[in-house]
Design a protein around this nucleic acid. Structure first.
Lengths: 166, 166
DNA sequence: CTGAACTTTCAAAATAAATTGAAAGATAGT
DNA sequence: ACTATCTTTCAATTTATTTTGAAAGTTCAG
């Protein structure tokens, strides 16, 4: 496989996978493109290489910045802005863990806490409470685990996991 | 909050959350419904309670069975089939980990292995290889972690995590 | 201040995903 | 074998998401 073929396959595969995870295909492809780009790319570059419109490129670049996965980069003497991706994949993983925790786990925990206030006075209500309690403990666990990933140094994390999960 | 209100909110919230995770809203709602149902439900019950069509109910019930999250249940003397959800939420979590590993991580690892065969003879190709290597190590880590969850007993898992990730 | 270069917005269009419901397919009792 | 009951399929429809592109907005050099 040549480099060109491999790159094309990577962009394609990453985009497809993303959709399974509830992530927009184009956003994933832009991220992949910037990940493997040796130089910062302009919006124009991204539009051209992925054959997408200006609006689409702009929207998804902004979204990636929101996620903390790419950064604006100003070339001296250039008017337009360029973009670079965080290349340290462990940092990327930690950033994703951090954002998913903030955006997804936190709201779940809040709703679960509300639901635990319901009166448990009938058999159905008691059954319901048991399920909510169970979900709460799993969600709390997920929150701790993600938080650990967020806080971890790469080597520490790998080391701990290898110890426990060999 | 009454039990009815809490249940309605749970079904609604679960369905909404699911879409963020690339899971179909109705599938999540059916799962939630069966989770909190004290008795096995028929397809008819599900259609009625969630106000969905027969085809939709059938399709998503089958999908949930594929995921190993619910089971067919035959009432003695009854012609039609009923459905029950696995109520042990830690088992559910392990089952989800198992399926996501099989369906999502495995294929990623395969593609990455292919991409690592590409020649790294130009500066771009070398950059590309570094990124692919990084992704491979993170993916391998994710695979190990999920596998650990799959194999773990609830108490063991909690214990280990509390030790490491307090 | 003006205009060129670039970025952002957003309503409309295109695409993708989920849902319906009627028809076809099973299955079991008689 | 017939029929009533229940399940599955799938083409058509509906709904949700993504993408486009032209217009508006911004910024900066001159």
């Amino acid at each position: 496989m040549t480099y060109e073929e491999a790159k094309a396959k990577f962009l394609q595969t990453w985009g497809t996978l993303a959709t399974q995870w509830g992530i927009n295909r184009t956003m994933a492809q832009i991220h992949a493109l910037l990940l493997v780009a040796p130089e910062p790319l302009s919006a124009e570059d991204v539009m051209e290489q992925l054959q997408i419109s200006r609006g689409n490129a702009n929207m998804n670049l902004r979204e990636l910045i929101d996620w903390g996965l790419i950064f604006r980069y100003l070339k001296p003497g250039e008017r337009r802005e360029f973009f670079v991706a965080e290349k340290d994949i462990w940092k990327v993983a930690r950033q994703v863990a951090k954002e998913r925790r903030r955006r997804e786990i936190k709201p779940v925990l809040e709703v679960l806490a509300e639901l635990q206030l319901a009166d448990a006075d009938t058999p159905e209500a008691i059954e319901f409470q048991k399920i909510i309690d169970g979900i709460s403990s799993v969600a709390g666990f997920a929150d701790s685990a993600l938080n650990a990933v967020v806080r971890a140094e790469e080597n520490w994390l790998m080391g701990q996991f290898m110890k426990v999960f060999k």
